[in-house]
Design a protein around this nucleic acid. Sequence first.
DNA 1: AGCACGCCGACT
DNA 2: GTCGGCGTGCTC
Length: 736
Amino acid sequence: MTESAQHATILKVALDVPLDGVFDYRSDVPVQVGQRVVVPFGPRKQVGVVVDIADNSEIAPAKLKSILQHFDHEPVLDSEFFSLLKFCADYYQYPYGQALLSALPARLRQTEPAQARQQFCYWLNEAGQSADIEAIPARQMVQRRIFTALRERGRLSEAELSELSPSWRKGLLALREQGWIDEEQIYAGLSATLHASNVQPELNDEQAHAVQSILQQRERFKPWLLHGITGSGKTEVYIRLLQAVLEGNQDQALVLVPEINLTPQLEARFRTRLPQYPLVTLHSNLGESERLQNWRLAQTGVARIVIGTRLSVFTPLPRLKFMIVDEEHDTSYKQQDSMRYHARDVALVRAQRRNIPIVLGSATPALETWHNAQSGRYGLLSMQQRAVSQSQLPQVNCVDVSRVQMQEGLSPPLIKALKTRLQRGEQSLLFINRRGYAPVLLCNACHWIAPCMRCSSRLVVHLRQGFLRCHHCGHEQKIVRQCPSCGNADLHPTGHGTQRLEETLAKLLPEARILRVDRDSTRRKHALSEMLSAVHAGEVDILVGTQMLAKGHDFPNLTLVGVLDTDSALFSPDFRAAERLFAQLMQVAGRAGRADKPGEVLIQTTFPEHQLFNALRSQEYGTYAAGLLQEREIAQFPPYEFLALIKAEANEYGPVQRFLQFAADTTRAMATDALVYDPIRPQMERLKGMERGQLLFQATTRQALQIVLRQLTPQLRAHPLSNKIRWAVDVDPQEF
DNA sequence: AGCACGCCGACT
DNA sequence: GTCGGCGTGCTC
């Protein structure tokens, strides 16, 4: 080995490839840890991240290649970022390089040098100020509009200009050619165009106690469960905490929110109340260039507050001192493909490693979280009174549908309640988790039911479009007129969906203005927000909708919530179904009577005495959770035991079964405390034409589970069937 | 995951 | 004779 070869720098590079470990490359130029590089990988080029620098390599020198390019002048990634992703890659059994690269904005995964798009703001200079609008030809409407706006409002950002006209660039160019315009680069993500507000609402005792408790222990790792019922003012607590934590320093805070259109609401409140702190958001609606820019602002410490969804839990934040996970029970925190991480859990790990406090907020905490709060591992802060003092909790009542004569899925008490609201000019919401017209198309003669060919599911009748549609794979076909099984023409849409309910209501209450809100009616862009503002404007009497309506907006004039058809979830084989239903019903119940008017919740069910409804009636989460936890303990389910699942699918079940059986046999041959079951088929045996199977692992500790999986996954990857089927490890699975 | 290499069928 | 099918194997 030559002198120079011995001392040549070896870079350990993480690459976006489904292989374990990192790859060694030579570099003649100095490269820092955390820098992006472009390397030759087989016959192609790959972007990688330098995660370590060494003097030598295990790899044969002949095999070692040199890097092609490196991006200095880009901020480097810090070691906290690497180590957090290394931890996750190990814990969730996912290749390190892929985990690392997928946590970067897409722009940074491309081989081009990544420049965040520069954005500018514009204003009239002296020449522009003294210019006369008549100097612009009257036909140049856009130019005139921009000119007037700049004169009246001063500086305008690109976003504000694009609201004036889609062709603002052309208009602005003309004004600039006149020499009237000055410009300056801005960070669009940071600009708080909203009006700041100094109004600090007074905290009630519970809120004040929560803020005080958390701040008392702000210098170390401490998870807090902020258990606050809907309307108890959790957001105000967050604001006070952020004010206190960020004041007089350069520190940063990360706020995680569920993957829904809730981000803008929280963003707006934070921007008005915390205008002094640069704030960026990171969510899927951002364009790639905006995402990169906001991410850079976080990474460089410019942004002090980051509001983001699941993926943003990995955002590099050099001065991170505080974390909030809002609606911590929300299922969208769990990634359901690629690396199946749970953002709330990752946030907890991150907080622990940084030794900082983390606040988990929810009205209906995940049982895992509740258990930790009960056992004292998390601090428990309870807020059971509504912050808006006069507003009362809704009255919750059940209607036993087996004892009344139903009218098209609606019980007489519910119809009566709807009529009352209509007379009073108040709004109602009917909650039904079934979109479409009817969930099945049934042959009355031979009981044939229209099935989906690609999934083990029934096709849903969408009467208006004349289609049968599978809600799992999206398959569509014309409604059949004749039973393919017996030839009978007596086919009937059976059961009730949102469309049918809408139709029924229109017949029953012809004077009511009805609005249906589900995935079908809100497919169009901005449709949902338009509908919500129609509700706020009082243009709607009855809202019919799916779980989309459970979250977010509150409607002050809404005083009745009707819940239809929830019984299937009560006895679901998925042990988390009841917990989820409870959370959902608590949320819809929270929609009712939020202002000065008391609300009523009417639940149609065959099981009015079910403990879930009793808990809902008393709004006592704790009692219900205690019951569920007891069941979980007996059944040896989380949080008492830990689970992992191998999910596999292929065109045929045979190879899936053989692969999973191999996994089970291999595990049983190991000396382990973990228990492995036999391969089984999930509820949805076939999905999108794929035959599915799964294998469950169970252990008393995470550790035991980890030991098994660490040994097992490399063997599975080496198995001959590994490339023939699709499979993934899901640690702490949420769905079965 | 890509991408190349490799060894067998129906086409200008 | 070749274009192309996708099985197998490698990537520092």
